[in-house]
Design a protein around this nucleic acid. Structure first.
Length: 703
DNA sequence: TTAAGCTTTCTTTTT
DNA sequence: GAAAGCTTAA
């Protein structure tokens, strides 16, 4: 069934990697271990990525063909980094390995076998916005008396369905446990769920959860396909296993296949499991040895990243979690400074501290790009962002509004999706609504007229041309219609040249639409031009679309940065979640307040506090040398008034010896000195302004 | 029927 | 303090 073919000059024997020198004993054991199921419990900063990378190199060296290795990660960032490192280490092009996120790997395989599920290989992938649009249509279909009583919105429904898919909880149980307020709607919700499923099928579209679920379904139902992939993959390696859900765990286990001895290696750290809200189940990591009887367990507990001072604080914090593997990170590095705790009066002062300290660090020779400001939720970053702008410190914001989720990107992409998959109702409606004179009602009419005609493989253009669509249109739209059909035809003609296809959309009047509709239209046009350039790498719309929907962010695109070209590399503003797996010389964690970090919403859920503490753990372990923990005493609570807040419990529960409190003093003249570098005095010897044993009173309202 | 204008609803984290 | 949703005027 399988043929081995070693390319000349690429033979694995040319690799010269000195494993003994590059790795410690524990890491080496993982890298060189034999076959069978393996689990690696790897603490933060213990060289997990390094170990996995070397493991891949070692497998290649031992003659495992590149196509026989499947490397699955949880985020795109991790996938890119890992494949890049393998490439660096072995010289083997990343494209020869099977690697990527669960979603992208499943999508790739699904495309090959889409027919089995009644899909075509150009099925669309729905993001949550598309999902919501489609759900709204389902709600309308069923004439749900939405206004009558509190019925869950499309967004909430999407969340319920997603959680259901990822946890496999029956709907009734899920509703009564987590959404008790909707239990009276059980039957209606179920109907919507069914309706949603059939509309997805009709639209030849899958949402993110379908990619996993339906691929598992294919594997379970088709022995042939199952055997084929079991045969192909000699080794499956999974990173961040603590963040997988049941479906993902089953996918890798079924693909590894019990018969061949399950060459399945999973790597993870239960203390870093921070995706429970999405159905991740860190039981997976605890249960793995039980499900795979011959599992060998490895531990990586030496931390190479952070100073002992940071690790002490980290260990002391995570110790408060009951449900976890007991493990202690051993420090390897030399002593550094104590983590700093900085109480601030308000977010503005906090931001000013961050900015001033960043300037000091820069004077001390720390590169700006080696500094990060982390926060629990994106909204927490605002004061820091404005202050950095004022100080003229270049920064980049990671994530937030995802590049491809912005309206103008979605509009443009919808054109491409429609051409690629004419059954894609969501894209179709989106495009139609952009045409002048076409609103909801007319769009419906056109869709209903066109759908029966657009059978599989049918080019949309043909349908348009053979039908009298114009007869359905109000006079205003009728005038523009031929132009629209022409645009679609042209995009279709350039299916193999996405760059041109995008410029066709832009030239077809979409540029004018953007100029008229958005106030920051120029930067949006620029985005679209960038998108066109990016698209140039691909030779088909299909491939481009898949990348766009699974990529999340476009080549690390910074959204909302003040970075100028050729400037020094900027500091990073990021949520803790997005900072996972990264490290910096200095890390600021801001807004450490009760109700913010930990977030109130999580605290209301079972296990929420421990999950939040793990997020805090992830945040603190990002830092190599200096860690700054700060919070503003007064902060705008949700709506209008300012509220005096309590410092985060994660700070209050720490022994005082593990950090140093910095007391901020305003300069006597009150003037700030944005460009002069170090100017603020910080006196480390001043008493802490709050006491561990004497919590502040109840928050009260001020104006 | 559309589109603008007004009101209402939330604010976690990601593929 | 912003985006989605609803109402009303054109």
């Amino acid at each position: 069934m399988m043929r081995r073919f070693v390319l000349p000059g690429r033979g694995t024997s040319t690799l010269e990697i000195d494993y003994e020198t590059d790795l410690n004993e524990q890491q080496l054991a993982v890298v060189t271990c034999g076959s069978g199921p393996k689990i690696v419990i790897a603490g933060a900063g213990s060289g997990k990525t390094r170990t996995l990378t070397y493991r891949v190199a070692h497998l290649l060296e031992r003659g495992v063909p590149p196509a026989g290795i499947l490397l699955v990660t949880f985020t795109n960032k991790a996938a890119r980094e890992m494949l890049g490192r393998v490439e660096q280490l072995t010289g083997l092009s990343r494209h020869r390995l099977w690697g990527g996120t669960f979603h992208s790997v499943c999508a790739r395989m699904l495309r090959r076998h889409a027919g089995l599920l009644g899909y075509t290989d150009s099925f669309s992938i729905l993001d949550e916005r598309d999902q919501r649009d489609l759900l709204k249509l389902c709600i309308t279909d069923l004439d749900v008396p939405v206004k009558q009583r509190r019925f869950p919105s499309a967004k909430v429904l999407a969340g319920i369905f997603s959680l259901q898919a990822n946890t496999r909880q029956p709907l009734e149980e899920l509703l009564s446990e987590r959404y008790i307020q909707f239990i009276e709607w059980l039957e209606t919700v179920r109907k919507i769920s069914d309706r949603y499923a059939s509309r997805k099928q009709a639209a030849n579209a899958m949402d993110y959860d379908d990619l996993l679920q339906r691929w598992l379904e294919v594997l379970k139902d088709n022995k042939q396909i199952r055997d084929r992939y079991r045969e192909q993959f000699d080794h499956i390696l999974v990173d961040e296993y603590q963040d997988t859900n049941i479906v993902q765990a089953e996918i890798v286990e079924i693909m590894a296949g019990a018969k061949k001895g399950v060459n399945l290696m999973v790597v993870g750290d239960d203390s870093q499991s921070i995706y429970a809200f999405r159905g991740a189940n860190y039981d997976n990591i605890l249960q793995f040895p039980k499900r795979n009887k011959t599992t060998e367990v490895f531990r990586l507990e030496t931390n190479y990243r952070s100073t002992p001072q940071i690790l002490h604080l980290t260990n002391a914090s995570i110790e408060h979690n009951k449900e976890q593997h007991k493990k202690v990170l051993r420090a390897e590095r030399a002593d550094g400074m104590l983590p700093a705790l900085i109480p601030c009066s308000c977010p503005e002062q906090e931001a000013e501290f961050v900015a001033e300290r960043i300037l000091q660090l820069r004077d001390e020779g720390v590169a700006l790009s080696d500094i990060a400001v982390l926060y629990r939720a994106h909204s927490h970053r605002l004061s820091v962002e404005t202050t950095l702008l004022r100080y003229d410190i270049p920064y980049e914001v990671r994530g937030g509004l995802r590049f491809f989720q912005q309206a103008h990107i979605k509009d443009l992409v919808a054109h491409l999706r429609l051409v690629e998959n004419p059954r894609d109702e969501v894209a179709f409606r989106r495009v139609l609504l952009l045409q002048p004179g076409i609103g909801n009602v007319t769009a419906n009419r056109i869709w209903n007229a066109v759908t029966p005609q657009t059978s599989e493989g049918d080019a949309l253009v043909g349908t348009f041309e053979n039908m009298d669509i114009a007869g359905l249109l109000p006079s205003k739209a009728r005038a523009c219609w031929p132009e629209f059909v022409k645009t679609i035809r042209e995009i279709h003609a350039f299916r193999e040249d996405p760059e041109t296809a995008i410029s066709i959309v832009l030239d077809s009047g979409y540029r004018e639409y953007v100029l008229a509709k958005f106030d920051n239209s120029e930067s949006r046009i620029e985005d679209l031009q960038q998108l066109a350039i990016f698209a140039g790498q691909y030779d088909s719309l299909n491939k481009l679309l898949e990348e766009l929907l699974l990529l999340g962010e476009l080549y690390g695109q910074e959204v909302g940065s003040n970075r100028q070209t050729d400037d020094e590399p900027p500091i990073v503003l990021s949520t803790v979640h997005q900072a996972k797996g990264l490290e910096w010389h200095s890390v600021f964690i801001i807004c450490l307040l009760e109700g913010f970090f930990p977030s109130q919403r999580s605290l209301d859920e079972p296990g929420g506090e421990e999950e939040e503490r793990r997020i805090f753990y992830v945040a603190t372990t990002r830092s190599r040398e200096e860690l700054y923990l700060s919070y503003p005493i007064i902060r705008a609570g949700g709506y209008g008034a300012s509220v005096v807040q309590q410092p985060s419990r994660f700070l209050q529960e720490l022994p005082e010896t593990l950090y140093e409190t910095w007391h901020l003093e305003e300069e006597p003249n009150g003037a700030t000195n944005p460009n002069g570098g170090a100017s603020q005095d910080f006196d480390p010897n001043v008493d802490p302004i709050w006491d561990d044993n004497e919590p502040l009173g109840e928050p009260w309202l001020t104006d």
